[in-house]
Amino acid sequence: MAKVVVVTSGKGGVGKTTSTAALGAALAQMGESVVVVDFDVGLRNLDLILGAERRVVFDLINVVQGIAKLSQALIRDKRLENLWLLPASQTRDKDALTDDGVRKIIAELRTKFDWILCDSPAGIERGAMLAMRYADEAVIVTNPEVSSVRDSDRIIGMLDSKTVKAERGERVEKHVLITRYDSARASRGEMLSIDDILEILATPLLGIIPESQDVLRASNVGSPVTLNNAASAPARAYTDAVRRLMGESVTMTVPLERKGFMNRLLGRRAA
């Protein structure tokens, strides 16, 4: 049975696109067939993070408009043959993305893939609403920071009311993914703690992704971090998160303080 998972947050810049790419790649690396769909209207990002920016011909709105077939718009990843991308449009016309169009595309994607990850844009407007509308599950990306937590709470409320599942009285399974976690700042009390965030959001934790240069490096070269540096802390955290998404029970690793410069130099990797 195909699963549609929306990766959303409300707040911008918290790591939705990075996470969609990382989770998608990790699923593909485990043998699942995955399509990642960029729901932004006007600002494409997922293609860039996946390194497919030079190969985009058709996009989601072209398919909605009937200019292209789904199979013509889908771009296969060059490194992972199970990973496909449906890029976003560069048009500024938000009305071009219609509910009916999205419904049909999601229905067709369900017949072709095991996992459909929808990368939601920030905010609560049309793109974000349509990204979540047909979701079975949701990953709510949250930074340990007050406005991100509040926005995540808002989005959780919308997942429980604005989705087709909610309208039918069914539950969208929700998970919180904490990103940009800085253990040093957390231990100094400068950052909201994991417990604070979970208490406020009252939603199960999918994973904790540490702040890391590996993520930046990965997007610089256009390769999801789980592929570019699978041994890095964020990659391992994303892989654990994917295992939990697939129903496995994995002990939660809270990222430890990053070791100092000298230890890194001598080759000792942090947690």
């Binding site: 609560i124 509040r150 926005d151 709470d153 808002r154 959780i156 409320g157 919308m158 429980d160 009311s161 406020i200 009252a202």
Partner: peptide, 23 residues
């Protein structure tokens, strides 16, 4: 959740849970 608005003019409201900022 934040952003939700519960209006019940007829009487008391009881919530088994927290009320988010912005709700």
């Amino acid at each position: 959740r934040s952003g939700q608005s519960i209006v019940f003019a007829e009487g008391d409201v009881t919530v088994l849970g927290s009320v988010g900022s912005g709700a």
